[in-house]
Design a protein around this nucleic acid. Structure first.
Lengths: 113, 113
DNA sequence: TTGACGCATGCCGATATGGGAATATGATTT
DNA sequence: AAATCATATTCCCATATCGGCATGCGTCAA
């Protein structure tokens, strides 16, 4: 059954590292598919497929520009993820020995950038 | 290759609806595996496997209590997701977003008339 | 010790996924 | 129309994933 009805929701879309990378790339502005592919260091079809997933969940918009197709960020969908995780905010500040977890988290965050 | 080296990172862990549900359940306090299974309306092995994934990414901690095993929230790992999505906060309030939404709305309104 | 309970693990089947390569579709230029 | 460029789609393979089922393992009680 493999990840059941998960497909095509935002949480699933950003579970893929390359797709997260795409979103970061697009923060700088619109990019063509080829440019995205170069930015990722992958192939054109590879980029195209990931962009399709992002488009289907509404995280990305496309616009025709001559023979190119420019993709731009539509990050509104990330808001729900932000808010969902925000629902746990009170827990990651708890006074116990969460300090260690917090440091681990910092390390991960830094690595992800 | 299926979601390559994605496994066992937090983004992947919360891509699963049932796993998100587990985290929400645990906000109320520690639960045994059976209780989680009941809360999810699934089987014991099912709950156990999801809990394992959550444990491996550090979102959950377990503690032995007699023959039970109590799972509790360790939501620190969600912080990285919260912060990552927060990096797009400026984009989901941007003016062209509003403009786009406005245009979409116009189109729909017209179609509905 | 034996049995009962709670949980984890292993195996299986069905399906989804990502990557690569080839090809199709679409748009532009000449 | 033909050639060319940019992108999308398709096919195939390897692998990962989820769910169900059965089983193994540890713990407690009688």
């Amino acid at each position: 059954m493999a990840r059941a009805a998960t497909t095509s929701d935002v949480f699933n879309a950003i579970a893929e590292p390359q797709r997260r990378e795409i979103l970061v790339l697009l923060r700088a502005g619109e990019l063509s598919v080829t440019e995205v592919a170069q930015g990722l260091g992958t192939t054109q079809p590879g980029a195209s497929k990931h962009l399709r997933v992002l488009r289907e969940v509404g995280l990305v918009r496309d616009r025709k520009a001559g023979k190119q197709r420019l993709y731009g960020l539509d990050a509104g969908g990330l808001r729900s993820v932000h808010e969902w995780t925000g629902g746990f905010e009170q827990f990651w500040n708890e006074s116990f020995d969460r300090l260690d977890a917090y440091v681990q988290d910092l390390k991960q965050t830094r690595k992800a950038e």
